[in-house]
Design a protein around this nucleic acid. Structure first.
Lengths: 141, 141
DNA sequence: TAGTAATTGCAAACAGTTCGCAATTACTAT
DNA sequence: ATAGTAATTGCGAACTGTTTGCAATTACTA
């Protein structure tokens, strides 16, 4: 649980408005424990206000990403973007090939990767997208 | 440079046929130094035989992937798949945010990641997709 | 060389996302 | 509280990347 942000103030400070679509998308994103596709977000938002359009979901997500509030990653090869509340960069994704679930993991792994890149490859990493497909502990049987 | 494969024999052994689209896609893929989108492959194949359809490019690529000859990865957020000749899993991608180029790198980094996952997360990794966005040495200035 | 099943080209379908525009709405300054 | 104004929405239509159905073609086998 990170600090609850005052979304209205945050947006207004940057010249944006707090609207219903944005509030609901933000709520859904915050309540989700994992990654959500735009479609999933739309469904959950729609349960609360069915008038909200899919295009507005995308627009909200794009805005949140620009403001650093949310994050998109392309996980797996199904071509759909998954969204989540922005988290520090030092996390990676474990995608179970059987149950399809996406787990987050923190720790020093990504930091190791970052220093390796700097030391051996003279590459200044901005974002590190580390996605691993495999079998999670409950599926490996 | 890996061993030049006899594509015809390889395919026939597995009950497939060597066709013009497949040969040309394979040639293009082998001649490319980096990742190619399906569109790029289609353009290059088209220079050699303009009758070849985009759908056949996709079908060839899909087949090659199933047979382990080629590999798709979703790099960046533009949503387009990039294809390349299959390489051992222990490589990672450095995507330069300025010049847009994609570099391959081998080494022990991916192996470190794999063992970390096994040791600390009980996760049996199948494919490791490690993509890093940042600034490459010539762009970091 | 003929037979047959795999493969192609084409066009149409599809999924996910973006865009143009008129109608609406949140905020600002009275 | 209210009116004004620019940001934002909903809608549908466009767009990109990819897949699919099907008749015509083609590579392999015998």
């Amino acid at each position: 649980m990170t600090d609850p942000i005052d979304l209205g103030a945050f947006l207004r400070q940057r010249g944006h408005r707090l609207t219903n679509p944005r509030r609901l998308v933000w709520d859904v994103l915050g309540a989700a424990r994992g990654h959500l596709t735009a479609e999933q977000i739309a469904t959950r938002v729609g349960r609360r206000d069915s008038r909200i359009n899919l295009a507005s979901i995308y627009r909200s997500l794009t805005l949140f990403a620009e403001l650093g509030l949310a994050r998109e990653s392309i996980l797996g090869t199904d071509g759909a973007g998954r969204w989540e509340v922005a988290h520090p960069d030092d996390e990676f994704h474990l995608i179970c090939g059987r149950c399809g679930d996406v787990q987050h993991h923190g720790g020093d792994l990504v930091e190791q990767v970052r220093s390796h890149l700097g030391n051996y490859h003279a590459f200044k990493a901005a974002t590190i997208e580390l996605s691993v497909t495999g079998l999670c502990s409950s599926c490996v049987v």
